[in-house]
Computed example of a mutant assay.
Amino acid sequence: MNSLVSRGSLFDDFFKDFAPGFYVRPLHGDGLPAPSQIKIDVKEDDAAYTVHAEVPGVPKEDINVSIDGNVVSLRAEVRQHDEKKEGEKVLRSERYFGSVARSFQLPVDVDAAQAKARYDNGVLTLTLPKLQGARAQRLAIE
């Protein structure tokens, strides 16, 4: 069950096009990203995979990476909130809380003990060494 409400649904797009004044966009921030919005790039060399995942605005303490064989799972707790300043009158306040997750499968098992993760400027970089002895092998066709 997904507890997040997508703001980009077909229904919302219909009303936005049909009656632009009817659709109200948030005054602050964007909605929570959908799992498909965690954009990733995966590169491979002979020894390892390098994964770059965009997780902007999330503290590194709220990001969880798990590796199970050749399956890599990313999970992030998303929290957006407004700050009220002295003398301000709040007309509308929106807060977003929830989590997003994405898993993907690599062709070869990963050596989880040697894997490394680094988070810088909203981009999570994973260095995932290939497990020795788990290399793909091409079979000759008889």
Rank of each mutant, 00 (worst) to 15 (best):
V110G: 08
Q80H: 15
K85E: 04
V78M: 07
G69F: 10
D111G: 00
G87C: 09
S93A: 08
N70Y: 13
L106V: 04
E86A: 08
V90H: 01
D82K: 12
G87W: 03
S99N: 04
D109Y: 08
L106E: 01
V100W: 04
E77T: 15
R95G: 07
A112P: 02
S73G: 08
A112H: 04
E86D: 12
V72L: 02
S103V: 03
Q80E: 13
V108R: 03
V72F: 05
G98C: 07
G98A: 06
V108D: 02
V108T: 03
D111A: 06
I67N: 09
N70G: 13
K85S: 04
V100Y: 05
F104V: 06
V71N: 09
R102M: 05
Q105W: 01
E86S: 11
L74R: 01
L106F: 07
E83D: 10
V71H: 06
Q80I: 11
R102S: 04
A112D: 07
D109N: 12
R75Y: 00
D111K: 00
I67D: 07
K84P: 04
G69W: 11
E94S: 03
V72Q: 03
D111Y: 00
S73T: 15
V90E: 02
R79D: 07
V78P: 01
V78K: 07
V78H: 10
Q105A: 05
V110L: 08
V110A: 09
R79N: 10
E83Y: 13
D111L: 00
A76D: 02
F104T: 10
E77W: 15
E94M: 05
V100L: 13
R75M: 03
G69P: 09
D111F: 00
E86M: 11
D109E: 14
E77V: 15
E83V: 13
K89D: 06
Y96H: 13
D82R: 13
A112N: 03
G69D: 11
K85D: 00
S73V: 07
N70C: 14
L74I: 01
S73W: 08
S73K: 14
D82N: 14
Y96L: 07
E88D: 12
V100P: 08
V78E: 02
S93V: 06
A113P: 00
L106R: 01
K89L: 10
E77L: 15
R75V: 00
V72K: 02
P107T: 06
R102T: 00
E83L: 13
